[in-house]
Amino acid sequence: MPMDMLTRLKQLAAQEFSIDAAKLDPAASLESLGIDSLSFIEFMFKIEEEFGVAVSDEDLKSIKTLSDLERHVGAALAAAGKA
């Protein structure tokens, strides 16, 4: 069974930011996880590569949590016909 998207996002975030994946609360703000805006932009670059999608600058601004990220990447996949 393929890994669900949130689990994969948590894995990638854990690796990028050296945070224990088990402790990553999807509803917690990225800021509270110690992820600053520059680090997040670099992370998004890797997410876009991983999933083969592009998240617009406008959408990027509204991503405040991992749950937000999951929703936007899911929507981008659907729009690209990959979901």
Partner: peptide
């Protein structure tokens, strides 16, 4: 450095 830090 952690692997994540080293990559950046």
């Amino acid at each position: 450095l952690t692997p994540g830090e080293a990559a950046n």
